[in-house]
Amino acid sequence: MKFGILVNEGPYNHQATDSAYQFAKAAIEKGHQVPRVFFYHDGVYNSTRLTEPPQDDRHIVNRWSKLAEEHKVDLVVCVAAGLRRGIKDEVLAPGFRISGLGQLVEAGIQYDRLVTFGD
């Protein structure tokens, strides 16, 4: 089955992004596909490579990048929400790309399920 995921909150502030990641990881381990994760609202902050958490904490941004690299997950950051918050191409971590909200609607149309994580 193909799962699209929508993440609406930033990293560290809200558990939504952790839950989304755990869900994506579990889905892939079970043989499902997660073709795309769409980052909206403050969720766009998941994409910045400037993120430097303390050594003993999880690295949420790198975790997404690794998932993208290993399982071909398309990490899409909303352009409008990103521009509002200073997220541009030059700060993106590997695996992320900036595009329009159409990518979210398209995920809803093409995939079997769309699961939202937010506040």
Binding site: G100, E106, I109, Q110
Partner: peptide
């Protein structure tokens, strides 16, 4: 790329599919 569709080109996979979105 089209601004109207939020950065995607309509392709075969979305064309003709009508889902109920709320």
């Amino acid at each position: 790329m089209s601004d109207v569709t939020g950065g995607i080109d309509m392709d075969d996979e979305t064309e003709g599919v009508v889902k109920k979105f709320m």
